[in-house]
Simulated assay, not measured.
Amino acid sequence: MNERSEPTTGAAEPLAGGDRVDSATEAFVAHRNLLFTVAYEMLGSAADAEDVLQETWLRWMKVDMGQVRDQRAYLVRITTRRSLDRLRTMRRRKEAYIGSWLPEPLLTAPDVAEDVELAESVSMALMLVLEMLSPTERAVFVLREAFTVSYDEIASAVGKSPAAVRQIAHRARRHVDARRPREVVSPSQARAALESFQRALEARDLQGLLDVLAPEIVLVSDGGGVKRAAPRPITGADKVARFIVGGLGKAEVALTGESTVVNGNPALLVRVDGEIDGVIAIDVEGARITGLYYVRNPAKLTRIAAENPLTLR
């Protein structure tokens, strides 16, 4: 379906060239943070999300504003379609990726962590689960669950009937629910677990790590073939703790952790001899860490120097 099929309001007057450009620019800027969040949640890559926004902008500038009934819905539709196209090409890229693939971490404002719905929707854990969905399932899930887009609007965006979209949404939700954390903890509980982990990490304290790691913990590390990382996820507190301590290098190497907020959740910025080594995101249940996501690939650490505005509205 072509984006030009958006129904007219019937009452809009044609805009002069300069006025049309100004109006289109104003609308795009007003919704830019939302569009970036949509693209990022679908792709897991800020760089690709920015490319999608550029494509959305170029397409948007060709649209007849007099034919657009709902600018937000129209822009989300364009962004979704461009993201779907890119998702399919990214799948081939990921198949050739060296080791485990993790989403690109984003530094976010502390108040994002207080927005439970937003923080969960962009969490590393959930975005990793979304990687298991097909491109269409991911688009439907993201638009419906995170952005509460109507089934009719989603159907228009993904080129399916509303009935088919409902079935896809149900299937995707069931798949995600089976893999998402059983317990949602508060930001303060997550920070407390992270602080315990940080102390044990900096002290290279094996027992301290075992005390804060859940028995069933899973560690996923992403080095992109550039930095050392486990080729596959590691499961079990003892194996994870020994992998972490064994990978810290010589005792004289200065290792520090800095508490931060990544993807709306408490995280740790790790430095080795003062240089950024990576970002560790966590899952917490029952005061213990059940998931560790360590992004070390330098190409994925470009968005941790400045806060990235994310929004569901």
Rank of each mutant, 00 (worst) to 15 (best):
residue 189 Q to T: 07
residue 187 P to W: 02
residue 175 H to L: 13
residue 226 V to R: 08
residue 175 H to R: 15
residue 188 S to T: 15
residue 180 R to F: 02
residue 228 R to I: 05
residue 193 A to H: 00
residue 235 T to Q: 10
residue 170 H to N: 10
residue 185 V to C: 06
residue 220 V to E: 08
residue 208 G to P: 10
residue 228 R to L: 07
residue 173 R to S: 14
residue 222 D to H: 13
residue 241 A to M: 12
residue 185 V to A: 06
residue 197 F to S: 01
residue 215 P to A: 12
residue 207 Q to Y: 12
residue 201 L to T: 00
residue 212 V to K: 01
residue 230 A to T: 11
residue 225 G to A: 07
residue 203 A to L: 10
residue 202 E to V: 07
residue 235 T to D: 08
residue 229 A to S: 14
residue 246 G to H: 08
residue 232 R to P: 12
residue 180 R to M: 04
residue 233 P to T: 04
residue 178 A to I: 00
residue 163 A to P: 04
residue 178 A to S: 14
residue 166 R to W: 10
residue 191 R to G: 04
residue 217 I to W: 00
residue 177 D to E: 14
residue 162 P to K: 15
residue 169 A to T: 04
residue 220 V to K: 06
residue 238 D to M: 15
residue 220 V to M: 14
residue 242 R to G: 03
residue 211 D to M: 05
residue 176 V to G: 02
residue 226 V to Q: 09
residue 199 R to L: 05
residue 199 R to A: 09
residue 213 L to I: 11
residue 164 A to M: 08
residue 178 A to N: 10
residue 188 S to M: 07
residue 221 S to D: 07
residue 234 I to T: 10
residue 223 G to N: 08
residue 236 G to F: 02
residue 173 R to K: 10
residue 189 Q to M: 05
residue 191 R to I: 13
residue 200 A to L: 09
residue 182 R to C: 02
residue 175 H to E: 15
residue 235 T to V: 14
residue 238 D to T: 08
residue 197 F to Y: 14
residue 165 V to R: 02
residue 196 S to M: 02
residue 183 E to S: 01
residue 250 K to F: 07
residue 178 A to K: 14
residue 252 E to L: 14
residue 206 L to N: 11
residue 224 G to L: 11
residue 180 R to D: 06
residue 164 A to Y: 01
residue 196 S to A: 12
residue 235 T to A: 10
residue 221 S to P: 08
residue 218 V to H: 03
residue 250 K to P: 00
residue 181 P to A: 10
residue 207 Q to K: 14
residue 196 S to K: 10
residue 253 V to P: 00
residue 207 Q to T: 12
residue 180 R to H: 04
residue 216 E to G: 07
residue 164 A to R: 09
residue 240 V to S: 00
residue 239 K to F: 07
residue 212 V to R: 00
residue 162 P to F: 15
residue 197 F to M: 12
residue 242 R to L: 15
residue 194 L to T: 00
residue 251 A to S: 11
residue 162 P to R: 14
residue 231 P to M: 10
residue 164 A to V: 11
residue 205 D to H: 12
residue 209 L to Y: 03
residue 206 L to R: 14
residue 242 R to W: 09
residue 205 D to Y: 13
residue 178 A to V: 03
residue 196 S to C: 04
residue 237 A to G: 11
residue 171 R to S: 15
residue 195 E to H: 12
residue 198 Q to N: 11
residue 203 A to W: 05
residue 213 L to P: 00
residue 240 V to Y: 00
residue 203 A to I: 08
residue 229 A to M: 02
residue 227 K to S: 06
